[in-house]
């Protein structure tokens, strides 16, 4: 495949095998995506005309899209957003050459594996209704005009919700983990979030994973809403930092 070497700084999206044809897509700062190759490896790059770039919303989306597109064809080591080398030559001399063995090994390890992310959120009124119905003390405090009762009510609900979350998230993780090679669970950020995590699974097991997620969604019957995204490049499973 033809590789155009430019003098401009090179924005790097990820690393893949050399025979994966990626070119022409619109990348960060609207530049055309191409590859810089070394041995069996290809870095997916695009030229950056100005080094004084401010990332825009569109650039973040493009980074993910370019990786997603390459990942549709072969294993990819996704880089975090924002990595820029001084030139295409520097991508070879500072990254592909010195890290060749590690990158080849990483690509082999990720071969045939995909990332699926799950986000599960409680439906506020459904889960609170179940808590009220399940705990007579809470039901009794409900609607009281006494401020102390209101604090006690809220505290009891908060504890009941926390207990439930522990139980539900353990069950969800256990069900989905049986199909995963690796699991990465994120710190919770939203009040009604049950779980947010990524699962590294074999491409051939994606359907089975989906079936398990559907079964979970059915079992929780609307008190928990699930969102399953993927197959994605393995963003969560290459989160290391390398000094160049």
């Amino acid at each position: 495949m033809a590789t155009t070497v430019t003098d401009a700084p090179a924005y790097v999206y990820g690393i893949t095998w050399v025979d994966v044809a990626i070119s022409g897509a619109d990348g960060v700062a609207d530049a055309a995506v191409q590859t810089v190759e070394h041995g069996e490896l290809a870095a997916i790059v695009s030229p950056l005309e100005s080094s004084d770039i401010r990332a825009r919303r569109r650039d973040l989306l493009r980074h993910a899209e370019v990786l997603q597109q390459a990942f549709g064809r072969a294993a990819v080591v996704p880089l975090g957003f924002g990595t820029v080398f001084a030139s295409d030559d520097d991508v070879v001399s500072d990254l592909l050459e010195p890290r060749y063995e590690e990158l080849v090994e990483l690509l082999h390890r990720l071969d045939g594996l995909v990332e699926l992310t799950i986000r599960a959120l409680y439906d506020e009124s459904a889960v609170l209704a179940e808590i009220v119905e399940g705990e007579p003390r809470i039901a009794a405090l409900r609607g009281s005009s006494n401020p102390a009762d209101q604090v006690a009510l809220g505290e009891a609900v908060a504890h009941a919700l926390a207990d439930r979350r522990t139980r539900d998230s353990d069950e969800i993780v256990a069900s989905l983990s049986s199909l995963a090679r690796e699991v990465s669970i994120e710190e919770r950020v939203a009040e009604y979030e049950v779980i947010r995590g990524a699962f590294l699974v074999e491409r051939s097991a994606v359907q089975e994973f989906e079936a398990v997620a559907e079964e979970l969604a059915r079992r929780y019957g609307g008190s928990i809403r699930f969102k399953l995204t993927g197959p994605l490049p393995p963003h969560h499973f290459v989160s290391e930092r390398w000094a160049s």
Binding site: A55, R56, H63, A64, L79, F81, G82, D94, E240, S244
Partner: peptide, 26 residues
């Protein structure tokens, strides 16, 4: 954007390179 931010801002391989584009104003 929220999904993408989750995936590419603190995830993925991070390499100390020539420059790193700062994410400003998002």
């Amino acid at each position: 954007l929220a999904d993408v931010v989750d995936l590419i801002l603190d995830k993925g391989l991070v390499i100390d390179a020539y420059i790193r584009i700062a994410v400003i104003g998002i």
